[in-house]
Design a binder for these strands. Structure first.
Lengths: 263, 263
DNA sequence: CGACCTTTTGAACGTATTCAACCGATGTGG
DNA sequence: CCACATCGGTTGAATACGTTCAAAAGGTCG
């Protein structure tokens, strides 16, 4: 894996509630970028907040950042300053072990929060790379601290976000620790499908942004094994696979493949 | 696995800073249970807080709870009310998949925080069982919310705790996703050793509280494989293994076994 | 068009699993 | 108190699953 040319991603100024002049300069388009009017608000950090609290969350977002496909959003070892909320695009995160092995720890899509790995040591422990041209909202951590000091519900929400990440990680451990190759791939596809549905896309047809190698790393398998499982599912009539274009022809079959080892 | 007879663990009242009368009733022993005088304070939630903030943390702890070996601290699906800080003893946490498979997600020892899995859905997603007679400090979550509202450093500390848990989980993913059996066992033992050292115990000699099956589940291996690796390390002069009594005879050898697959 | 990357597929191989037997310690009931 | 069941652990032999190595096809991009 050799992403991460790590040129500095583009920074875009964003409308701020208290910065009326800037708003006039940027115009209507910028207003759309506020959390209160963002169509991702029910998936993202502000999920579940009332209108008043939402205004406070607006104050969090100063800037957005474009990250081109293959570019790093951040790298392990760099100082932790901000969390990021994915607006558009697709990312992968991975750790690199001391002896140089990679492990993909997750794939992030619209509405998901990136950067929580950096809080505990004031520097990032993950590498995060865009798999397609992407855009994130930058949430400066000191700002988040300030605002959450006066907004209890935002505090809850941050906790929930971190707790959800922990629970997700436990799910991955279950997958890596106790599932066979076909089950892992089935779980992976069903998870992706669910997340696309939550974002208003079709449940059964989607485009994989990552390589077979990325999938394999995430699932603890070699890329050849991933490819073979895809082929097997195709032969079984469960999937249609054309390169990275996936169509789930038989969702129940896929769930069955996940269910029990000897299906 | 068939722990969790789940009788309600014993609840012990604890001295509270503002409850002087209770303090007199309980006496000196109870004073020791305050965070400010607890010998675990530098490993536990209050780690890094100054004296003033520490007083606030004292207010968090109303009660302690004894959990006997084999008993559950909590189970998946039960309502989330509190976090727990391990005072003494040893726990394992595990998820159970829909189709009934177990996956041990971690082992918790003195000073470590348990219960973060419950925040995001107001109910626990993990099962936590004591592997020996244990005692935890109960941290009511609503209390933590209140106190952290006025203590910024405590807020930071909670974030750090959760972030550290996330990073730990990534380490486990790396282990499960890319290491061979011997490496996994080596990593497991070195991790245990480190954590014992941090608590003032010997680095090279310790007693395993968990079965080979628990270790196997955690490491994504079968118990026979764990046993075989122990035997291999014994033959190589790296370990002395007598039942659950482990002695690391050659720490460098163990690190080497972790280092590269083809050692 | 050619170079490179991703993906697929086959065949041989190796690691961890499965199945089974056995040991020792612990605990129970006659 | 001893016989017997149970549980945790070790070890062996056969098996199965995923990996490794290799070749080739299809796509993309300069």
């Amino acid at each position: 894996m050799d992403y991460a040319l790590a040129t500095a991603p583009t920074v875009i100024p964003v409308h701020h509630a208290s910065a009326a002049v800037a708003a006039l300069q940027i115009g209507i388009a910028a207003l759309r970028t506020q959390c209160s009017t963002c169509n991702l608000r029910n998936l993202c950090l502000p999920c579940g907040l009332n209108a008043k609290d939402l205004d406070h969350v607006n104050e969090l977002i100063y800037t957005r950042k474009r990250v081109k496909a293959g570019e790093a959003l951040y790298q392990a070892g760099t100082p932790f300053k901000s969390l990021y909320a994915v607006r558009t695009g697709f990312f992968k995160s991975y750790v690199v072990s001391e002896d140089g092995r990679d492990q993909v720890t997750g794939f992030q899509m619209a509405g998901e929060i990136i950067g929580l790995d950096g809080i505990h040591e004031d520097q990032h422990t993950l590498n995060v790379v865009a798999l397609e041209d992407s855009e994130v909202c930058v949430i400066p951590y000191v700002r988040l601290e300030e605002v959450s000091a006066k907004v209890p519900e935002l505090r809850r929400q941050v906790h929930r976000t971190m707790s959800r990440e922990i629970a997700r990680d436990h799910g991955v451990m279950l997958l890596l620790g106790s599932m066979r190759a076909e089950e892992r791939v089935a779980a992976f596809l069903l998870n992706l499908s669910q997340r696309f549905v939550a974002r208003g896309y079709a449940s059964s047809e989607f485009y994989l942004r990552m390589t077979r190698e990325d999938i394999g790393s995430y699932l603890g398998l070699k890329l050849e094994t991933v490819s073979r499982v895809f082929s097997k599912f195709r032969e079984d009539g469960i999937l249609s696979v054309r390169k990275r274009q996936i169509c789930i022809l038989n969702p129940d079959g896929l769930k069955e493949a996940l269910g029990h080892a000897d299906a």
